[in-house]
């Protein structure tokens, strides 16, 4: 790979200032996407700011919902996941699995074990790969992305394939979301890369709001699917999801599957996501 200058950031603020100091600098967390990109000479950051050792950026916290004096329904806890929390640590967090198994299950199937030991949530969403899993989850869960300078809603954060609302010198610190009443993820991997050819995340909030997001399939990255949201809002069932006619417009075609196939998979994965929820 091209030459680069490596920096170990001491904390998030330090990372942001190092990042701001050079227009060609990049944040390095787990590096599971960035390093291969650099090896293939597809990226040439002048500086790499390693945030992987920063304690304040790692870990999962779960804040219980305030008791309202009524019977406690499922969901509603505030979940915060640090940007450098690895997929492995998300997947194996028992407390998180108890309140949001959809997110731990999703993390358990990103990449392979070695990649999960190193890859991070922050790295996944900052890159916004059109076939990554986490963007689908955050969009469907209505998550908030907390950076060194502001809070950004997932709806605003993901701005298209490989593109986000992050400004120069802005570092993701964590994401937070309210535990859903019900959520599930259905992923169909590309046989070769095992990235999502189609991933559908369905979530119903404790207020009954339904959001459905799709990764892997869109020609401009992760997106919400209005038809599936409408169907599942009126009837949260796999049959209802299966009844939606998913069109192929705006979907990717490549050597692994054309848009029609991806459209079919969106319906099937949505159905399976509801079943899994």
């Amino acid at each position: 790979m091209y030459t680069t200058k490596y920096h170990k950031a001491s904390d998030a603020a330090n990372a942001a200032s190092l990042l701001g100091a050079s227009p060609e600098a990049k944040i390095l967390a787990g590096g599971q996407t960035l390093i291969p990109t650099m090896k293939q000479h597809l990226a040439a950051p002048s500086d790499l700011i390693d945030i992987s050792g920063i304690a304040e950026l790692s870990g999962v916290t779960i804040e219980q919902r305030k008791k309202l004096g009524v019977l406690k329904a499922k969901g509603g806890e505030t979940i915060t996941i640090g940007a450098t929390t690895t997929h492995y640590d998300v997947a194996n967090n028992a407390d998180l699995a108890a309140v949001c198994p959809a997110i731990t299950g999703l993390a358990a199937n990103i990449g392979d074990p070695a990649v999960r030991h190193r890859g991070t949530l922050g790295g996944s969403i900052a890159n916004n790969d059109p076939a990554a899993d986490y963007p689908a989850a955050l969009l469907a869960l209505g998550a908030t992305i907390h950076t060194t300078s502001r809070d950004i809603s997932a709806d605003d954060f993901f701005t298209g394939m490989f593109s986000t609302a992050l400004n120069e010198g802005e570092v993701i610190k964590s994401v937070s979301f309210q535990a859903p009443a019900n959520a599930g993820y259905g992923k169909f991997p590309v046989p070769a890369s095992r990235y999502a050819m189609v991933g559908v995340f369905v979530a119903k909030s404790i207020d009954g709001d339904v959001r459905v997001s799709v990764t892997g399939a869109g020609d401009d990255g992760v997106f919400r699917h209005a038809g599936l949201e409408a169907a599942l809002s009126s009837d949260w069932s796999s049959a209802s999801a299966a009844g939606v006619n998913v069109g192929a417009e705006g979907l990717l075609s490549d050597i692994h599957g054309n848009a029609a196939y991806r459209a079919n998979l969106i319906g099937v994965m949505a159905k399976r996501a509801v079943d899994a929820a």
């Binding site: 170990k8 390095l28 390093i35 790499l48 070695a114 030991h117 190193r118």
Partner: peptide, 20 residues
């Protein structure tokens, strides 16, 4: 694949500096 601090990792996808 090697073990870094007891976990399997892909040594081709990690900088030596990050293993300081």
């Amino acid at each position: 694949v090697v073990h870094v601090n007891g976990q399997a990792m892909k040594s081709c996808t990690m900088l030596a500096a990050a293993a300081e």
